[in-house]
Design a protein around this nucleic acid. Structure first.
Lengths: 210, 210
DNA sequence: TCAATTATTAATCATTTGATTAAAATATTT
DNA sequence: AAATATTTTAATCAAATGATTAATAATTGA
């Protein structure tokens, strides 16, 4: 067993493994990742992986937890801030989210894939974001557009931010973009999305009243 | 070798395997799928899989090709129709796409994951949609909004259609939706998205002129 | 310093898994 | 029906892979 009791000066091995795991898992997904890949990427002996983290699964869960926290942690405080306007929230979310994902471009697809493959791992994490239902953000939307389910707008906002990163490989090829040009476009979207969302919230009602 | 020369009355075995492969591959992704899973789902002996399709990889490529064709095949004719307005195109795409995905809800994530894991498999297929660059659709957008890269709008449109399906598992849980309610929301989006896109295309310019 | 603890390594295990083989069953042709 | 071709099955192989073990090295605490 690895010791955890003592303040060990050199955390590097354990951290190296986690770092490598983050990288390989996010790149290839759980099933396609071999523990040997992680060991190699970390520059450590394969057995050390099991020494520090019992199993591939355990290591994955740790890395995953952190990722999800990062993924949704950005949202929570913004969405529940009663002191800011809806418009401000949209601006903040678009800006923070796009920045976050520019630095973790593989995160969205990774999370979505793994939620699909192992939904049970995410029950706890999803419970953490149950606050969303009662969030100030959704209330503000509902107030402005009582005719449309507020989740329509939340999904749209997230989709406008995230989807380009999901399409990135295809996009680079089809639109003939370089990495830099793609990033620039995503930075542009930080300005575009709030404007778009504002316009979307203003549109006339088209859904039948029930 | 399976014979292919003769008009065999009973295609069922080969087709059963493909059907099962479609299902299991799209549900779990390539790496997490075991040929035994497919065989079991198809109710056939494992060896038959290799008898009809040499290898897991070959079977996957066949199934994949068909899926992608379906995925992008809907777009092509619509995007290149010079006789319809931009608005009409947006309506048609939103409507057709959402219908398509309601019937293949796992398709988007499957395609995106596999493009990530094996981009080389998709080079040919991506070449097929190179027409997009010169498509009437993009030209119409560029004409209406010369200040914004037309791909911004294409991505947004696709994102608004597809992203809810990617988020579906989380959404059902968080928004407390049932399957039916989710589908209804997606049908609503067929009306909402064209209205939204129209509003987005009308917004005032916010990007700096270069 | 030296015993005890912790970390690391190489070798190996056991299971999973894609694929093959040889024999049996079924269908087709003559 | 006999011969031939095709399909299906059970058994098995070989490689990959997650995990363990036993020995060694390094570190720590007395």
């Amino acid at each position: 067993m690895p010791r955890k009791t003592k303040a060990n000066s050199d955390l590097s091995t354990e951290e190296k493994i986690k770092e490598a795991a983050r990288k390989v898992f996010t790149q290839k997904g759980y099933a396609a990742t071999r523990t040997r890949d992680i060991a190699e990427a970390a520059g450590i002996n394969l057995a050390l992986l099991n020494y520090y983290f019992r199993s591939k699964q355990k290591l994955f869960e740790i890395v995953m937890s952190e990722k999800i926290q990062k993924y949704f942690g950005v949202l929570a405080p913004v969405l529940n801030d009663a002191s800011t306007s809806l418009e401000t929230k949209v601006e903040t979310i678009a800006s923070k989210y796009i920045d976050l994902i520019i630095e973790n471009p593989e995160l969205p697809l990774f999370v979505l894939s793994e939620v699909r493959n192992n939904p049970e791992h995410f029950i706890k994490l999803i419970e953490k974001i149950d606050f969303l239902n009662q969030s100030v953000f959704l209330q503000q939307i509902a107030q402005k557009r009582p005719d449309i389910h507020p989740f329509h707008f939340l999904i749209s906002l997230l989709g406008l931010c995230l989807f380009p990163f999901l399409m990135k490989p295809a996009l680079l090829r089809i639109a003939n973009l370089k990495e830099k040009a793609f990033t620039d476009m995503m930075l542009e979207r930080k300005k575009l999305i709030p404007v778009w969302m504002k316009a979307m919230l203003k549109t006339k009602s088209v859904l039948p009243v029930i």
